[in-house]
């Protein structure tokens, strides 16, 4: 009798653990960032001022990085077949008021026409990464472009909805500081998370949106700038999100779950024991 009870107990425990833990373990398919490479830029939440004026700040070395391959811009005219910058490494921080995004990329020469840009979708409508050009079957939205050029020494906050529509905005909200050292550019873009300007992307912590990058090597080759205008290194859209502040309310729900489960067990066992005695 004792052996049979033990056997029953083992089987019951096995069925119970399997039926509860398998769904838990398989609740969602993990993403494959390890194989595919980076798919997202994450702005990590921090406290206090951000290193917006110092691309070389040691703070940046503590921030996890994402790296994206870059391609020559072959999507529309004028194309380019080969570009200097093959990949860009991106780090991001925010403090719930302001954000800072650091681009880091290899460029052997420092030139006045060296430039870099970030691009975001504005609003809820999807936009094509190529300057929000018109899509034929989908109503698209505009894009917000943050453009930095070394010779300008600052960023320009821009807007576009289709080819030939790119223009600086009336309200300029973006700052950028670039520093070149030993063949590497480090450029920090910064802005308030929200600006109140309808032509800007508004960053809501916790909400996923899209980001794209463009980089120009302004080196002079045969009397002409090597990469300018549409001749640049680009990426298409990748995911982008500012880390939301921690939500401690979930621990309350966990405790509630524990209490409810224990109460259920208590009631069930009392019922079973009463049934056996009666």
């Amino acid at each position: 009798m004792g052996v049979q009870h033990s056997c029953n107990a083992c089987i019951l425990v096995a069925v119970f653990v399997l039926s509860v833990s398998i769904p838990l373990a398989m609740a969602s398919d993990p993403p494959d960032e390890s194989q595919q490479g980076s798919v997202a830029v994450r702005l990590y939440l921090t406290e206090g001022p951000l290193p917006v004026d110092d691309p070389m700040s040691a703070v940046w070395d503590t921030v996890p990085a994402s790296t994206f391959d870059m391609a020559p811009q072959v999507h529309w005219q004028d194309r380019i077949q080969e570009v200097t910058v093959k990949s860009v490494t991106v780090r991001g921080l925010h403090n719930q008021q302001e954000l800072a995004i650091l681009l880091e990329y290899q460029d052997p020469t420092q030139d006045p026409a060296d430039a870099a840009a970030l691009e975001f979708m504005v609003g809820d409508k999807k936009a094509h990464f190529a300057h929000a050009q018109e899509m034929l079957q989908v109503e698209g939205g505009p894009v917000n472009i943050w453009y930095w050029k070394q010779s300008n020494g600052k960023a320009i906050d821009m807007w576009a909805k289709g080819f030939g529509t790119l223009r600086p905005q009336a309200q300029q909200d973006v700052k950028a500081v670039g520093m070149w050292q030993d063949g590497t550019w480090r450029v920090v873009f910064s802005r308030a998370l929200t600006t109140g300007d309808s032509e800007d992307v508004q960053i809501e912590p916790g909400k996923w949106t899209s980001i794209a990058f463009a980089i120009w090597d302004g080196k002079i080759v045969d009397g002409a700038i090597k990469e300018k205008g549409s001749q640049k290194a680009v990426t298409s859209w990748w995911y982008f999100r500012a880390e939301p502040p921690p939500d401690n309310s979930i621990y309350g729900y966990v405790v509630l779950g524990l209490i409810l489960a224990a109460a259920f067990e208590f009631a069930l066992i009392r019922k079973l024991q009463k049934g056996r005695h009666s």
Binding site: F16, V20, L24, Y253, G257, L258, A261
Partner: peptide, 13 residues
């Protein structure tokens, strides 16, 4: 059992 319920609540939230 209650611990698994708590764990599931946590992973969902």
């Amino acid at each position: 059992f209650p611990l698994l319920v708590g764990w599931q609540t946590y992973t969902r939230l």
